[in-house]
Design a protein around this nucleic acid. Sequence first.
DNA 1: TTTCATGAAACTTCATATGTTGCGAGATGA
DNA 2: TCATCTCGCAACATATGAAGTTTCATGAAA
Lengths: 154, 154
Amino acid sequence: MKRDSRLSGVLHVLLHMAEADAPVTSEAMAKAMRTNPVVIRRIMAGLRDAGFVHSEKGHGGGWTIARDLADITLRDVYAALGSPELFAMANRTETPGCLVEQAVNAALNSAFQDATALLLNRFGAVTLAALSADFHARMVTSGKFIDLESGHAA
Amino acid sequence: MKRDSRLSGVLHVLLHMAEADAPVTSEAMAKAMRTNPVVIRRIMAGLRDAGFVHSEKGHGGGWTIARDLADITLRDVYAALGSPELFAMANRTETPGCLVEQAVNAALNSAFQDATALLLNRFGAVTLAALSADFHARMVTSGKFIDLESGHAA
DNA sequence: TTTCATGAAACTTCATATGTTGCGAGATGA
DNA sequence: TCATCTCGCAACATATGAAGTTTCATGAAA
């Protein structure tokens, strides 16, 4: 199955935005992420609607973070993306008439529900500020620095 | 993303096999599952190789369960399918040079690893015998019975 | 030797994440 | 005013992989 990397991607973009002191254009982010500006706008749309980021048109426009990084958790970001499916496995039939399948679904659903709760709790416990701090710690440790050209840590 | 229903499907098939007292053909199972015999053989292949089921060709042939249901856990079945991907979300890049992406991956991987452990533990704690017992309990509760024609509980 | 069944390969179909193109709208600056 | 920059959005193209299908070979039973 083709796995969804929007959460990973949007977090990456947000942390890069956090490093910039001016609005970042979709094109600049796309270059850094080696993808297309439209893809950036697409994954940012939910965050904009949720009020986590702000976008401005025209000269000097682009994207800015609209809240304190400490006030945005991975769970918020996940929700802003529309709470996409977490698991790669599905029940064969969601509302089966077959009692065997009901028993199978019940067992699998129970496990997946608990795993969902675990994941959402974990996501809720991590703020963008924490991720950013981790990034800065890695920068110190590695001796690498931000490449201002691309907005990417080199 | 297109989600994988092989685990759900193979469990369904196994429990139906457990109800039968003679080998069940791929075609019969396919009819009960409203799919194609080749699909059945495909998802059963791993279980056969793992020794959980046995297949026989020719007249009176078909599939039989080769072990006690109490000795097969959902985790065994999952492994026999080749331990397919559990999650629908992936990191944008698995081995990023970018330190930002490393920080993002680390946070997400940590959560997903814990969720994986939870799921595998849950799967390991459920045997086919337990699922079968649950099925029989549902049959009593619902007043429904096995439809011998299709091998399906109606 | 006919029929029934699995085994395996090749192919088609379908869903969907991702990539791309094109154009309109709004903002900036000359 | 007008050119330019930027996002917003729709439409279309591409790629991947699960699921379904077709076909033929192999072996067992009647």
